[in-house]
């Protein structure tokens, strides 16, 4: 379970998050929506431990542990996964090798046995197929020369194989056509279960047509200004974010 209490954060002198309270229980999918500049990406970066953000107040716990005190790799081992809005290219690093190294690093940290190459590749190939990705996806260098849609699918592939407890999907829908969107959503829905929760960060409602959230929160000017059920997303789609920022 993820519990965010009064989280405030700044970049340099500028306050981006102005006190966020949010709880995501196990097994639930929550959507965070909001206009550009509301602090959505900042929230996902702070939860995954990226440098460059100063937490100025509040606390975040994950399964009772102080999340903010953990290194990024420790958060991954604890079960947090960030699907990047702009996935990073790693020239010369093979995709399969990268994911397997990550899977085994996480398994080691959890005290589990490492996966051998054969077992890993079998699972990885199945996941590639399920995501309707080209076969050479595992052989290519991580995100190098990938189209925008391929990069996003590669994030979901990693999520599938790393089996996180909490996935942070940062604008995963941006740059996807409708078919790709359906496939990506399928990947997330396949992971759904009592031990999987997700925070779906998005500007638009359309991803939520395919991933039905348990709760929807509206983030504006660094605060959650409204929360509600899936119907809130529909309402936002119809009326826009106008007027919410001032709250």
């Amino acid at each position: 379970m993820l519990e965010i209490k009064g989280l405030r954060a700044a970049v340099g002198d500028k306050e981006i998050l102005a006190g966020i309270d949010l709880t995501v229980p196990d097994g639930e999918i929550h959507a965070v929506m909001g206009p550009n500049g509301a602090g959505k990406s900042t929230l996902s970066y702070i939860l995954s431990g990226r440098d460059g953000y100063e937490v100025t107040g509040g606390a975040v716990s994950f399964d009772g542990e102080d999340l903010l005190a953990m290194a990024p790799e420790a958060r991954a081992a604890a079960g947090i996964f960030l699907a990047f809005q702009y996935p990073i290219e790693l020239p010369g690093v093979g995709n399969a090798n990268f994911i397997r190294t990550a899977v085994n690093a996480v398994r080691r940290a959890r005290g589990e046995t490492e996966m051998d190459t054969v077992a890993f590749l079998k699972e990885a190939r199945n996941a590639v197929k399920a995501l309707a990705m080209p076969d050479d996806m595992l052989k290519r260098n991580v995100n190098v020369g990938f189209s925008g849609g391929e990069k996003k699918r590669n994030e979901i592939l990693q999520m599938t194989l790393l089996k996180p407890k909490l996935a942070l999907l940062d604008e995963t829908d941006s740059g996807l056509d409708i078919d790709a969107l359906r496939i990506v959503a399928g990947g997330v829905n396949a992971a759904r279960g009592p031990k999987f929760s997700a925070l779906v960060i998005t500007h638009y409602q359309r991803l939520l047509d395919y991933i039905t959230p348990d709760r929807v929160h509206v983030l504006a000017a660094g605060r959650i200004v409204r929360s509600g059920g899936p119907e809130l997303a529909v309402e936002l789609e119809q009326h826009g974010y106008g007027g919410l920022g001032a709250a």
């Binding site: 990024p72 081992a77 790693l90 990268f98 190294t101 690093a105």
Partner: peptide
């Protein structure tokens, strides 16, 4: 690049090793 690798569970040193090998 470093953050991307670490967010996938690799230690900082392993991340550097991976990127350097690439």
């Amino acid at each position: 690049q470093l953050f991307y690798c670490r967010s996938r569970g690799l230690s900082e040193e392993d991340s550097v090793g991976l990127i350097v090998n690439g």
